[in-house]
């Protein structure tokens, strides 16, 4: 499935993924391919994008997540990639 992560300033990530784990307002949600249309508010925390090459981690805060037509769209008030050096 396709994953897009948008912050107000720029698109932070765009690509194919096998799973997404996101911090929703009331706890983590996991999204796998062929998920039903879904929309939820985001809380604050780390968002994981699992890909064949490995897992990428992002810090997100606020905004919402939307799943539609096998595309996950994360529209966050704040989003930035956590580089491996910090983790």
């Amino acid at each position: 499935m396709k994953v897009v992560i948008l912050s107000p300033e720029r698109p932070v990530f765009e690509g194919e993924a096998t799973a997404v784990v996101a911090p929703a307002y009331d706890g983590e949600v996991g999204i796998l391919p062929r998920h039903a249309p879904f929309m939820t508010l985001l809380g604050e925390g780390r968002l994981l994008v699992r890909r064949q090459e490995g897992t990428q981690e992002f810090k997100v805060k606020g905004g919402f997540l939307q799943v539609r037509q096998d595309t996950v769209r994360v529209v966050a008030e704040y989003a930035t990639e956590v580089t491996n050096a910090d983790s």
Partner: peptide
């Protein structure tokens, strides 16, 4: 109607509207 909405459409609109307004200014 096709979406599973959490917590609810109202709550999402309530959270997203201020972002929309701020973004217009941005």
């Amino acid at each position: 109607g096709n979406y599973i909405l959490r917590p609810s459409a109202e709550a999402i609109v309530e959270a997203v509207l201020p972002l929309y307004v701020q973004n217009a200014m941005f």
